[in-house]
């Protein structure tokens, strides 16, 4: 289980990366933490002619907070979890990130790498989508921001063009409260299904808006606006009804691990539980 031969560049600047991408296009892969790409290379599921290593590329780390919070693409998951500002301002990440992989993978794995990889069950794409965040892409032509709603296109497929790289992730500050619930066969596995919730309540404590996101159900994370359910307090009945309604609108994957009916079931149950978690937090 060894990779095909590839050329290797340890890029020191974003400019270098973009030059190489322009030249190599589809034949190049960007190596971040290597938690997904490494196995794919070793299994020869990825056979690039060039690997561009971002691990010592300047300008891809760090956390800045203005309106939104911006994390550099190469911010390690462990670094993010240890950042009090990020965890306070984006509480959904604080709830979700302990479910990502393991201690030994979060130490190397990056935020940008997970989002670029776009596994339909992964936690970070789900959180970004639920919060309505954006991915910042840069190419030789300049940079653009793509809403998470448009970024994830399918299994391991995104809106990133071959000449583009992710430089940063923008996490909006959302007021309200949050819930995250995941079921996996084993601790640390990719989720069978995960539900992420952001809810806004009005002055009377009734649901006013927010989003419910689901991972591991369709071929990409999906999120649903909660405005249409606004008007009543989030209790078990409402949570059940909302989640069941939303689960019914999904078109779940059907594979040997879990069939569509089960994924839809989990979507409803975990959606409800995530809503209740968020509501409980709002009430406390």
């Amino acid at each position: 289980m060894k990779p095909v031969a590839f050329d290797y560049v340890r890029a020191s600047s974003i400019e270098e990366v973009l030059d190489l991408l322009l030249e190599a296009g589809d034949d190049a892969v960007l190596l971040a933490g290597g938690m997904s790409l490494g196995p794919m290379l070793n299994l020869r599921a990825a056979t690039p002619s060039l690997v561009i290593d971002l691990n010592r590329t300047a300008g891809l780390g760090g956390i800045t907070a203005n309106g939104a919070v911006t994390t550099g693409a190469m911010l390690r998951q462990t670094q993010a979890m240890r950042d009090d500002l990020l965890m306070t301002v984006v509480p959904l990440l604080a709830k979700a990130m302990p479910s990502i992989g393991h201690y030994q993978t979060r130490s190397r794995g990056t935020l940008g790498g997970s989002i670029a990889h776009a596994d339909p069950s992964a936690e970070l794409p789900l959180c970004l989508l639920t919060l309505g965040g954006e991915v910042e892409l840069q190419s030789k032509d300049g940079s653009r921001r793509v809403a998470a709603d448009d970024f994830f296109e399918g299994v391991l497929t995104t809106a990133r063009q071959p000449t583009e790289m992710i430089t940063a992730i923008h996490w909006p500050r959302r007021s309200g409260s949050f819930g995250f619930v995941e079921e996996a066969q084993r601790h640390g596995d990719f989720a069978l299904t995960a539900a992420a919730v952001w809810i806004e309540l009005d002055a009377t404590g009734s649901l006013a808006g927010g989003r419910l996101g689901l991972g591991g159900v369709e071929d990409r994370p999906v999120a649903f606006d909660l405005k249409e359910f606004a008007g009543a307090p989030v209790d078990e009945n409402l949570a059940t009804q909302v989640a069941r309604d939303i689960a019914g609108r999904t078109d779940p994957m059907d594979d040997h691990v879990a069939d569509a009916a089960y994924r839809r079931q989990l979507a409803g149950v975990l959606g409800k539980r995530a809503l209740m978690e968020a509501a409980g937090e709002a009430g406390s």
Partner: peptide
Amino acid sequence: FLSGTFADYLCPTAME
């Protein structure tokens, strides 16, 4: 064959 990696063939970990 559908269980070709340790991500598909699930051995118990310390958490299970």
